[in-house]
């Protein structure tokens, strides 16, 4: 059964549009699976997503916000696998639920940043002229600010909270995507296959959305995955400074911050969420590297 499925997917002469699309996706998946670092990244990110989805099943019945002041800063034990924090909350449970906050931020930032970057970049690259000049100068202005500082300023001005952290991170993260998309668009727009759709009478919107954006997408996705680590760190940094998720929400950066005063005596309070941040950043970086190898046109064509 699996044999015939993979045969069907790898068929050189697909019988329908669906089979052709699924086949090329399957080839990409096989390429990632045969790339050990990429596979490690994919596993870490998949585990993270599963943990975030199934946190209520995995938390052993302990709420991440239930306080037990009699049991503050308890060592890791059978009752509390990763110990408890300064308010007696279970760190294992808080770390599990913290993955939800991290994933929410990552997902929202991706949803905001990729379309903005793609839209600005492809428009500038395809239309050229003054549109290009205006859009790229705006991009330069945003690029000129150091990322964390600008995010801090936005978060401080808009008020602390996850939504505002997302907006702040997105505002500082889109310019590189616009740059990438513009560079790709300029090369693609000159190619014969774009000239061919121009000659068929396609509108500019159609050419951009159906012919140029799909080709820019792979490099944008790779960049986004590689940027995830930076986004997670920025979010954790904002949380650490108290400008991200607000108590009592479990957020890894804020948890590290809370354990700062007791880091020498009760190391687990800061270390566990720190390890979580590290692992997830590493996972996204490895996945990004793997995706870059898969999408690399030199490899696939």
């Amino acid at each position: 059964m699996t044999q015939s499925l993979s045969h069907w997917l790898l068929d050189e002469a697909p019988g329908s549009r669906r089979q052709a699309v699924l086949g090329s996706l399957y080839r990409g998946l096989l390429a990632i699976l045969s790339n050990p670092p990429g596979l490690a990244g994919l596993v870490i990110v998949t585990v993270l997503v599963l943990i975030a989805i199934f946190a209520p099943l995995l938390d052993r019945g302990i709420s991440p916000i239930a306080q037990d002041l009699g049991n503050r800063l308890a060592q890791p034990s059978a009752a509390h696998w990763f110990g408890t924090d300064e308010l007696g909350r279970d760190i294992y449970s808080r770390t599990l639920y913290g993955s939800r906050v991290t994933l929410t931020i990552v997902a929202l930032v991706s949803v905001l940043v990729a379309p903005i970057g793609l839209a600005v970049g492809t428009l500038a690259g395809y239309l050229g002229g003054w549109v290009d000049i205006v859009l790229m100068r705006i991009t330069d202005v945003f690029l000129a600010f150091p990322r964390l500082v600008l995010a801090l300023a936005f978060a401080a001005a808009l008020g602390p909270g996850i939504e505002n952290a997302v907006i702040a991170i997105s505002l500082t993260a889109w310019p590189p995507y616009a740059r990438i998309a513009r560079a790709e668009t300029i090369t693609i727009a000159r190619s014969d296959f774009i000239q061919a759709v121009v000659l068929q009478g396609a509108s500019t919107w159609r050419i951009l959305l159906r012919h140029i954006v799909p080709l820019c997408l792979s490099s944008v996705i790779v960049r986004l995955t590689l940027d995830m680590a930076g986004i997670i760190l920025t979010a954790a940094g904002l949380g650490f400074l108290g400008l991200g998720a607000q108590p009592p929400t479990a957020e890894w950066g804020a948890m590290v911050s809370a354990g700062r005063d007791v880091i020498l005596d009760q190391w687990w309070v800061s270390t566990i969420p720190g390890v979580a941040i590290f692992l997830v950043s590493l996972g996204f970086n490895l996945l990004g590297d793997g995706l870059r190898d898969v999408f690399d046109p030199k490899e696939t064509s």
């Binding site: 549009r17 014969d192 000239q195 061919a196 009478g201």
Partner: peptide
């Protein structure tokens, strides 16, 4: 546009690399 159509020199460059013949 419908009056005249064009065939390019290089068939390796004139077809969209991510689209099937059908598309």
């Amino acid at each position: 546009r419908r009056q005249l159509q064009f065939v390019f020199q290089d068939p390796y460059a004139s077809l969209h690399p991510r689209q099937t013949a059908d598309q």
